[in-house]
Design a protein around this nucleic acid. Structure first.
Lengths: 195, 195
DNA sequence: TTTTAACTTGAACAGTCGCTCAAAATCAAA
DNA sequence: TTTGATTTTGAGCGACTGTTCAAGTTAAAA
């Protein structure tokens, strides 16, 4: 009883996500987006409501993708820490050149949205908290499997991981530091185990 | 033989710097700036050339201020590490609520400017490299004074410090984490000494 | 084949952007 | 007091912003 949508919603969100991740919310114009996803303004606005609506879906999709990626590395690793390490290496080293930015899109979002009561700032907080909770689950497993001591609680390990990972990604968002990546990741995981 | 400028350039740059730090470059309009520094567009443009020119001076001033702050803490501390620790505590805990952002303005800049050959991106790289060089000097002193072992080189300590500090500041750019600040700073400096 | 609800299109709107420049104001030197 | 180089002012320019919506297109249902 009608026409059908001609675009694949998931694919549109993924493309928009890449652009937003690269340029940030404010520096990405709706015309940039129109070109990237090959849709006219009316279609975008009927599907996503607003630029903010599309960004919102993009950021949510980004975190889903990140978790999916971690799951992938975990399933083909012997240990939780091994899986996390493969994930970190993949992000910091292997996909560095094909990624829109070395910096996590969530961190970029949290950095960009200054108004503390704006929708997008609160969204970035929610998703970050969810990700910390997810990491906490993983570190709970790692402790239970005896990969880590329990001198720190799981959530403390999760916090430590986030600080290290965010710090590393920020550091590697510049040229000519590739040579330091592997030793610094070594250091990071050595520290986690020694904590 | 002429009129004299009616504004104090240093003060204008400092005010602009706070606004840019809080909102970022793209989300700060020239009208925001005009109101904040109480100058009309013509005056701003004859003094700084462009919005980018003013941002440029603001970011440079920010790094000077940061170094000045560190110097202050160093001069009233017994050790280099003690001075750095006082600086970190001041940034992460004491000035958290009166600061435009928990995140370092240099890191925000590096995150915001995606185009790798833009003036502002390269400026953020230069200033970051200068800051790393400055930290390297400090850690050289710390090693020479016997505060640290020389299992790591000074520049490796500097890199480690930057990763930790950036990671911490990113983590604390959110509400309800004040209670974790002191223990995490303790952990950071404990790790530096144990490396 | 006709109908009709859903989707797509793109010109265009109102608002904001960074920025300019002629005119007014200022003040040291003559 | 007059001169004249310098600074300040603010209306306003053209470009661009996010968004709307009437008109056109599509395809399932009648």
């Amino acid at each position: 009883m009608a026409n059908k949508v001609k675009f694949e919603r998931d694919n549109v969100v993924r493309v928009a996500s890449q652009l937003f991740w690269q340029k940030g919310f404010h520096a990405t114009s709706t015309r940039d987006l129109q070109e990237a996803v090959n849709m006219r303004p009316g279609s975008i606005y009927s599907a996503f409501g607003s630029k903010e609506g599309l960004y919102c879906e993009s950021l949510k999709d980004y975190t889903v993708q990140m978790k999916t990626q971690i799951e992938g590395f975990l399933s083909s690793a012997d240990t939780v820490l091994g899986g996390l390490r493969a994930f970190v290496e993949n992000v910091v080293i292997k996909t560095k050149d094909c990624s829109p930015s070395a910096i996590c899109m969530l961190v970029k979002a949290n950095s960009e949205f200054a108004e503390k009561d704006s929708n997008l700032y609160e969204l970035s907080l929610d998703l970050t908290a969810q990700f910390e909770a997810y990491l906490t689950q993983l570190f709970t497993q790692a402790i239970n499997k005896g990969e880590l001591s329990n001198t720190l609680t799981a959530v403390e390990y999760a916090r430590f991981f986030q600080v290290q990972f965010t710090g590393l990604r920020g550091y590697f968002n510049r040229p000519n530091v590739e040579q330091f990546a592997e030793p610094m990741i070594n250091q990071m995981f050595m520290l986690i185990k020694k904590l």
